[in-house]
């Protein structure tokens, strides 16, 4: 959940909801009126965490440090 607190517009909108005193994660049935969701939509939180945070930021920073260690592998052949 860390990434949705820091990144992504939906996370920011949820935080604004919290600041206005509206609790929950934006999912009907989970702290909100309405039938609890059974859909796969909740997977957005997992995919955002993976695709917003882990894959781009972690892998590209790793690649950057690898590139600094091996500049010879990044020269034109």
């Amino acid at each position: 959940m860390l990434d949705i607190l820091l990144l992504g517009e939906y996370a920011i909108l949820i935080i604004i909801d919290w600041l206005r005193g509206i609790q929950g994660w934006g999912l009907p049935g989970f702290g909100l009126p309405g039938t609890p969701w059974t859909s796969t939509w909740f997977l957005i939180y997992i995919t955002e965490w993976l695709c917003w945070f882990i894959i781009p930021i972690v892998t590209m920073l790793w690649w950057r440090s690898w590139a600094k260690k091996h500049p010879e592998l990044l020269e034109e052949i």
């Binding site: 604004i16 934006g26 309405g34 939509w41």
Partner: peptide, 19 residues
Amino acid sequence: GFANMYATIAMASGGVSWT
């Protein structure tokens, strides 16, 4: 608000099947 938007849709006619 974000929560109000989804809760309103979910409670409207056809909202549950849409979500």
